[in-house]
Design a protein around this nucleic acid. Structure first.
Lengths: 342, 342
DNA sequence: GTGAAAGCGCTAACAC
DNA sequence: GTGTTAGCGCTTTCAC
C-alpha cells in the first residue's frame, strides 16, 4: 500500500499540516520548507489520496463526458479536445461510452454521480427517460451540459445545428444540379434527436427548394445494438437499390459518414460508379472520409469550436443554447448528375 | 447538493447504521427493514458517496484501462469487452487515452493511482520510462496487467503474438505465390513493441521462408503526434511507389489496417489496382476493413479471448504471460500475383 | 436485530 | 510560519 500523509510526516519529521499546505499551494510556507516537502514526496513516492481530498474539499476535479459511441472519430476527437481544455483548468476528464444503450447510460450516470464528478457533458441516447435521469442528477449535484441535442430547454446545450446539416446537403446537391436525392437516415431517428434533426432538415430543404418529396425519399432501417454504421449503410442501400433505380435518384445523403461508406460499397458491388452514376454526401467528416476512393464529400462538424463551447457551458452560471454551423466539405464523391438523368 | 446518509436517516427515522448495512448486504436485517430502506432511498433520490465509501473500504471498485488510441476500433472494442466483464464483477471501468504521448500517459497513471483504482490495464506507449512508472505504481498499490506488450517479465502480460502476425502475413502471401513483399511498418517501431514485433516477425519469415530480404523491404516514416494511420499509410506509400516498381513488389503488408487503407488510396491514385496489380494485407481487422473496396484481407486479433485473458490476469495472484494467436482473414484485397511478375 | 464509537486520509479554520 | 482541532460521508467492531 501507498503511504499516507501522516506516515510521510512521521518518516520525514515534517508536520503533516505543512505537507498538506504545500500541496495546496498555501502561501505562508518558506521556500526552504517547500523544497524539503517536495523532496520528501519524491523520495518516498508519496501520492495524495484523491478520494480523501475530494471528500473533504467537496470537489473531485472530475469531469465526465458520456458519448454514445466512443469509437466514432467525431466523439473521440471531441473527447481529446475537451480533455485538453479540462486539463488546462486542472480537471480530469473521464470518458464514458453508452453504446446507445439507455440502461448502460443510466448506469454510467449513476457511477459518475456517485463518484461526485463536478461536471458532466452528456450526449443523451434518447429523449424521455434519459433526460429525466439527467435532470434528476443535475438538480442534485453537478453541472450538466447536453451535447448534440438541442431541445432541452432546462439545460445548457451545445452542438452543431443538425437540422441545417440536413438542409445544407440538399441545398448543395441541388446547386450541383441534382433533383432526385435520397437520404439514408439513422435507425434511431425516433429516439435520437441528432438523427431526426438531420432528417427534418433534409425534408424541409426538399420542400423549400422546390424538389419533389416523392422523388426525394428518406430511408431507414432496423438498427443493431451498437453503432454498426457500415453494415447499416450497406444493407440499407442494397435493400433500396431498386427504389433508387425506379425513382431515378442521382444523389445520396447519408446521415453519417460510416453509413455513406457502407452505401458506397453496396453501390460499387452493384456496378454503379461514384460519383459518375450517383453522388454521395456524408455527414460529420469522420477520419476516414478523406481517404476513401473516391474521397467522401461530407458535412463537417466544427469540433474545436464546439469543444470550447462545451467547456464554456460547463463553467457558465446561466443556461445557454449554442448551435454551431455545419461546414460543407466538397470532395470527390459528389459531382453534377449525368445528362439524361436528374 | 445530494443528501448524505445521515440526512436520509434523520429524514426517515431509520438509523444511519441500518441504511449502511442494507446497502452493504448485511445479513441480520429484517426483510421489512430492507424494503423500508430501499423505499426511502428511492423516494429521496439518495446516492451513496463512492468517495467516502472507497476511503473507508480501501477499495474503489475502479479499474483503469489505458490505451494509446481510443479511437482505433480495436481498442474501443477491447474496452467494451473488458467493461462487460468488469461490470459483471461489480467493478467500473475507466478508459483513458494516452495518445502515444509519454507525458500524457504519465499523467493518466498518476491520476488513476491517486484515484486509488484497484486495477489497471495498460498499453504502454514506450518501453523504458513508462515501464518504470508503471512498475513504481504497481509495487505500490494496484494490480497491473500489461496489454499488447510482451517483454515485461515483471508483470502479467496479455496480448496477441505480434511477431506471429508479421510472420503469418508473409507465410500466407507466399502461399499465394508472392515472392516480393514490402512491409509498411509503424513510425514508432523503435518505441512500440507492438509495431516492432510485427516487423521482426515479417523479417524472420522472409528469412526462414527463403525470400530475399532485398526484395522484401520494410518501410517506415515519421509519425505524427496522434495515430494518423491513414495519412501515414498514404504518404508512406506515395513516397515509396518508385521502390515498389523497381523491386517488382507484388504485395504489401501494412502493420495495421488504417495504414493499409491509406496505402490503397495511394495505389489507386497511381493507377494501380488492388489486388490485380498489388495485393494488400492489413492487420488488426478494424471495423472498416470488411467494408473497403475491395474488402481488406487482414490479420485479426482475437478480441473476446484477449478481453477474458485481461480480466483473468487482473484477478490472478501470480504473474503470467499469455499470447494469443493471430487469425488470418482472407478477403478481396489479396490474390495471387500476376504472371510475369513476382 | 439496533445503537455508540472509532477511524479511513485529508483539509480548514483557529490559535500559538 | 506551525500545531490543534474538527469534520467530510461512510463502514465496522463491539456492546445492548
Amino acid at each position: 500500500m501507498s503511504m499516507t500523509m501522516s506516515e510521510l510526516a512521521a518518516k520525514t519529521g515534517i508536520p503533516r499540516v505543512t505537507i498538506s499546505r504545500v500541496l495546496n499551494g498555501f502561501k505562508y510556507v518558506s521556500e526552504e520548507t517547500k523544497s524539503r516537502v517536495y523532496a520528501a514526496i519524491e523520495e518516498n513516492g508519496y501520492e495524495p489520496n484523491l478520494l480523501a481530498r475530494s471528500l473533504v474539499l467537496q470537489k473531485s476535479n472530475l469531469l465526465a463526458f458520456v458519448v454514445p459511441d466512443i469509437h466514432l472519430s467525431f466523439y473521440s476527437e471531441m473527447i481529446d479536445l475537451v480533455e485538453q481544455g479540462a486539463m488546462a483548468g486542472g480537471m480530469h476528464l473521464l470518458p464514458f461510452n453508452s453504446l446507445f444503450d439507455p440502461a448502460r447510460e443510466q448506469r454510467i450516470l449513476s457511477v459518475a454521480s456517485q463518484l461526485r464528478v463536478d461536471g458532466m457533458i452528456l450526449v443523451p441516447v434518447k429523449t424521455g427517460d434519459t433526460m429525466a435521469n439527467a435532470t434528476s442528477l443535475k438538480s442534485v449535484r453537478h453541472k450538466l451540459v447536453i451535447f448534440d441535442y438541442h431541445e432541452a430547454a432546462s439545460h445548457t446545450t451545445v452542438g452543431m445545428d443538425n437540422w441545417k446539416a440536413g438542409y445544407l446537403a440538399v441545398e448543395r446537391l441541388r446547386q450541383l444540379g441534382h433533383r432526385r436525392i435520397a437520404m439514408l437516415e439513422g435507425g434511431l431517428a425516433e429516439e435520437s434527436k441528432v438523427q431526426s434533426a438531420r432528417g427534418r432538415g433534409f425534408r424541409a430543404a426538399v420542400q423549400e427548394l422546390g424538389l419533389s418529396p416523392a422523388q426525394c425519399p428518406v430511408f431507414s432501417g432496423p438498427w443493431g445494438k451498437r453503432g454498426e454504421y457500415f453494415e447499416y449503410g450497406y444493407e440499407l442501400t442494397r435493400s433500396h437499390m431498386a427504389d433508387f433505380r425506379r425513382l431515378g435518384v442521382t444523389a445520396l445523403f447519408a446521415f453519417t459518414d460510416g453509413v455513406a461508406l457502407g452505401a458506397m460499397r453496396a453501390l460499387m458491388e452493384a456496378g454503379l460508379r461514384v460519383p459518375d452514376d450517383l453522388s454521395i454526401v456524408g455527414c460529420d467528416d469522420l477520419d476516414f472520409a478523406a481517404f476513401l476512393a473516391p474521397p467522401l464529400t461530407t458535412i463537417r462538424q466544427p469540433r474545436e469550436a464546439m469543444a470550447a463551447g462545451l467547456l464554456a457551458g460547463l463553467n457558465a452560471d446561466r443556461i445557454s443554447h449554442t448551435k454551431f454551423d455545419p461546414i460543407f466539405v466538397e470532395r470527390g464523391s459528389s459531382a453534377p448528375p449525368r445528362k439524361g438523368k436528374g
